[in-house]
């Protein structure tokens, strides 16, 4: 199936400045309050940008205001999720896409590190078992291993 981005439609907005709809600044204010809450009580916040009535250009304006910081990561689970810290440390953007690369959600997270990047406890338990199994089979296959005991 053709992707939306592949359809050659150019949106012409000669007179329209990207920020004209003015929905970026209220969100930036909300982020500011959330960051203050985090600074005071370490209370993380997530803001779902799908619930915000953005007009054309509003999202670009918000993203331009937030800028890019030092950290960037991609999580490969059910399609890519791109995560980056904005130029305001502690303010992260999570751009969730499906396996076809189309966005399914866009969120701002205010935290030391986004939840999605943390390794989950249950995964660590599974990981330990997997590592043990790998070690066991590698040891069994390695003729020199015996002498190292």
């Amino acid at each position: 199936m053709a992707k939306l981005a592949g359809i050659p439609i150019h949106i012409e907005q000669p007179e329209a400045e990207p920020q004209q709809f003015g929905n970026a600044l209220p969100i930036l204010n909300e982020i500011r309050h959330a960051l203050a809450r985090f600074a005071e009580r370490a209370e993380p916040t997530r803001i779902d940008l799908a619930a915000i009535p953005f007009g054309p250009g509003d999202e670009e304006r918000l993203m331009a205001l937030l800028g890019r910081g030092e950290v960037e990561a991609t999580i490969d689970a059910l399609g890519p999720t791109r995560v980056w810290e904005t130029r305001f440390p502690g303010v992260w953007v999570l751009d969730y896409a499906n396996v076809e690369g189309e966005r399914i959600a866009l969120q701002i997270e205010i935290d030391e590190i986004p939840q999605m990047l943390r390794t989950q406890r249950a995964d660590i338990t599974d990981s330990l078992a997997a590592l043990d199994a790998a070690l066991a089979s590698a040891t069994a296959a390695d003729p020199a291993a015996e002498s190292r005991h």
């Binding site: 689970a77 999570l94 969730y96 995964d123």
Partner: peptide, 11 residues
């Protein structure tokens, strides 16, 4: 995966 599941829940 569990991260995939978390993403599923966020969406």
């Amino acid at each position: 995966s569990r991260r995939g599941f978390l993403k599923f829940c966020a969406a």
